[in-house]
Write a protein that binds this DNA or RNA. Structure first.
Lengths: 202, 202, 202, 202
DNA sequence: AATGAATGAGCATTCATTCAT
DNA sequence: CATGAATGAATGCTCATTCAT
């Protein structure tokens, strides 16, 4: 028998990445509902059959696209947070790096807002919550733990605050996605960072 | 000569409201992309032709649905904010009433998150921003103005802070939409309210 | 029992005429396929239900509209032909009056060309032929008979020539309907008239 | 880089031709308004999706169908006219070949009369006039020019006469489409040909 | 005589998906 | 790996027609 499905070939991975990037681009430009396999394929000079060949259906493509966005942003943030010494700076950096990444990758977040609507059942919604929000909140809580252990932070409930911080970032991003001129992202990031750091300090 | 648009009849208005509510229900349950005229009609025991009869196409229906959500929430908040005397209480109330209304109308906000993806062009996105966010930020800024005039508030930039406050509310709501068990909405509202009031006070 | 369906009331007739004229107008402007009851009603300030009330379905309306065009044109031509003394002048007048009437009622003939396509079955086509062409060809043959009896005409086969004369008129009209600048209707009528008169004269 | 429009494959062309022929058949039998993609597909044993795959919408299909009729007839006529030596024979042949082709392809012309109604806007009507009538009139005028140069023809205005000749053919065809027993096409063609040749000769 | 609410069948069109080549 | 032909189900929408008021 042929082995079930081992390590993907190099070209396989390259194609997937290429298709995902084209999909994000198209979603950002035309919206999720207008983004068909044919549309993605057209912008890439390939056929829609090929997309179906590399992904297990549309759901797979969308899921992969979201993971891509999230992983890239997560890596960007982690790198910068890890470079900070104390918890206050880590928290500040978390917020500001989040916002920076968003600003530098507008299309991704325009697409992401669109894709939120692609999770229909409660199960899918919960699953998205787990892949998207849990890691973020966990990262924040890790920063809190450091701050608490070092006596830098105190007087708050980590779980709740983590949701609020992440929410602040996402909510500001959302307004900026709909109208970039309505919100000054960088300043909002600054303000958020300072407000949260003050809140968490003893 | 003849007025171009006669006032809608009673039955007309009732049907529209009925269809909008059913649409919101269906969107919350099945997602926007799965919500067809046929699906809405089925749940209502009417034909899809009737929906087309009462709405000028799908865009009209979902626009009306969004306005319905927004107007109801806006009225709920305004009523409570207006009952408060000073700016701090108004601000606190704004945040807490927002969250309360969200909690009491989960389906509406599940639907709303889905509907964000229905605005494809930049123009539609901007238009949504104007109907959805501008009034909220304007309301907040009116509260700030009162606080500033009465010497209660100070030391911040109203425009920027209004986006942040609204963003905080929306961002927390978003997480709760995906997984209600991940966030304690009421507590988050409390925390947000206190944090923002403290930030705005002199 | 109520008498089956006696003489239509005055208002009934007025409404029918009004609706038929509006229908012809709309067909000429928007084309037959775009002409719905709703469209006709809109241009008239009434409801589409009323059209359905006055006509036994769309087929009845279309048939009545065609008869209206044909009858008006027939009356116009007959009046002018009857005023002529000899067969040559009658024939000349038949052709030129036909073309004159067409030129003065462009919308009617734009509509008529569109409506040709509304007869689907062979039976309907034959029926149209009988109401539209038979009277025309019969009229022409009556003119021929006069010419033959008076020794003015001769050397042709009335039946065949009648079809050719009518065809010439219709064919030129058709080109003019599609592009009025492509054909000089009046001159074409003149030329046709002269050619046919010469052909029929001994 | 890549050429924008690759040459259509063999199967592509075959399918298009097959679908066009089936469409003409269905239009001739059931009328244009009754001719849906579903109806055409049913008669062909394929799905309506396939028609949409091969044509850019209904407009593309019927435009292609009309061009097919016109091109085939045009080629048929040209071949026979070119075989004639002098202008009189060319003109005679033009008329008679037109009528012959019509007689041999009744369904095409039944369909064509129906399709006249598918051009709704003035722009579409003019465009049809240009593709359908302009080449015919131009061909006739080319024949006239030969006749004039060789001193065979004279005493008429080419532009006007070309419209009249084409109109005669079309008008007779029209009557025959509605009722084939009302007109003897071949004899009418003969008569028309003789009348026009006599008219054009000096 | 007239309305407007409601129907239900039909329409062109879109699209993810399948599959032989 | 990749293509392009083909499917079939679904979608928003149109419209003549019916009917209670």
């Amino acid at each position: 028998m042929i082995p079930p499905k081992d390590k993907p070939t190099f070209i396989e991975e390259a194609r997937r990445k290429q298709i995902i990037d084209a999909a994000l681009q198209t979603i950002a430009e035309q919206g999720y509902t207008q983004t068909s396999f044919a549309e993605i394929a057209k912008g890439l000079g390939i056929t829609k059959g090929l997309i179906a060949y590399h992904f297990n259906g549309k759901h797979d493509l969308i899921t992969s696209a979201i993971h891509t966005i999230l992983n890239r942003q997560g890596a960007y943030i982690k790198e910068r947070v890890d470079a900070q010494e104390n918890a206050s700076d880590k928290l500040r950096t978390y917020v500001e790096a989040s916002v920076e990444y968003i600003e530098q990758n507008r299309a991704h977040f325009v697409a992401l807002v669109d894709l939120w609507g692609s999770f229909t059942s409660p199960e899918e919604k919960t699953a998205f919550s787990e892949t998207a929000y849990d890691p973020c909140r966990a990262h924040l809580q890790k920063i809190f733990r450091i701050g608490l252990e070092q006596g830098e932070f105190g007087g708050f409930e980590p779980q709740g605050i983590s949701a609020i911080i992440q929410g602040g970032i996402d909510g500001v991003m959302l307004q900026w996605v709909f109208d970039p001129s309505a919100v000054n992202l960088k300043e909002a990031g600054h303000e958020l960072a300072e407000m949260f750091v003050r809140r968490c300090k003893k």
